[in-house]
Simulated scan of single mutants.
Amino acid sequence: MKRNIVIATLTAAALATGGTVAAFASGNDEATATQRQADTSAQAATDRDDDATEDRTAVRGADVTAAEAIAAALKHAPGTAVSADLEDDGADAWKVSVVKGDGTEYDVRIAPDSGKALGAQRDTDDDHDADDRAELAAVKGAKTDAHEAALAAAHKGTVSEVGIDDDRGTVAWTADTVRDGKHSEWKVALGTGKVTQDRDYD
């Protein structure tokens, strides 16, 4: 009887502090089950902490949203925004690609904490194929631009990237989001701004 009382006391103390307790008395299945339950609870708490960390690191330091970064980039370099993404998942800056009226493309870097333009660099890669030109033409005539696509996708989570994509002849905006540690990809229709899920990934 005394042995059972001691084990029960140790078990209650361990559960109250979030720890585990070992079953010191052999053959006590109840104490062993209690240990496994405490271990499982502790592991679940660790998993939740890991998810929260992943959620933060996906957009770390990015007080400025994708939509705000696009607006700031267009103010600094007027034109048509075709993409925006956090360099190294937010470690450095937002990079917004803007195509000017003469067809030249610039990468505008936006500070993720203040929204200040850090500079613009011309994209000297002239290797734009017919698909790239078709995507740009579709974007210029669309009712939904990059800024609006980012705003629409933000209802699904924190947007870390938005860009234009041609999927089997259908041009649409794509956006990557993160919410509660879960990463998702969405399509945003050029004409209506309707958001549909593309895929989830861990």
Rank of each mutant, 00 (worst) to 15 (best):
K2L: 09
R3G: 13
N4Q: 15
V6F: 11
T9A: 06
L10N: 15
T11S: 14
A14F: 04
L15G: 13
G18Y: 01
G18E: 01
F24N: 13
E30M: 14
A31G: 06
A33Q: 05
A38D: 12
D39G: 08
D39I: 15
T40V: 02
Q43M: 06
D47M: 05
D49M: 03
D49H: 09
A52G: 10
R56E: 11
A58K: 10
R60L: 15
A62Q: 09
A62F: 12
D63H: 02
V64A: 04
A66Y: 06
A66G: 00
I70D: 00
A71D: 10
A77S: 09
P78K: 03
G79Y: 06
D89S: 12
G90N: 02
A93F: 15
S97D: 06
V98Q: 00
K100C: 14
G103W: 03
T104A: 06
T104G: 15
E105L: 11
Y106K: 06
R109T: 08
P112G: 01
A117P: 12
L118R: 04
G119S: 04
D123L: 03
D125Y: 07
D126K: 14
L136S: 02
V139K: 00
D145A: 04
H147L: 11
E148I: 01
E148C: 03
A149G: 11
A150Y: 00
A154D: 14
H155V: 07
T158K: 09
E161W: 06
E161H: 00
E161T: 15
R168P: 12
R168E: 15
G169K: 03
W173N: 00
W173V: 11
A175F: 04
D176I: 15
D176H: 10
G181R: 09
K182C: 09
E185N: 10
W186L: 02
V188W: 01
A189W: 10
G193P: 08
T196W: 02
Q197P: 08
D200L: 08
Y201M: 03
Y201G: 01
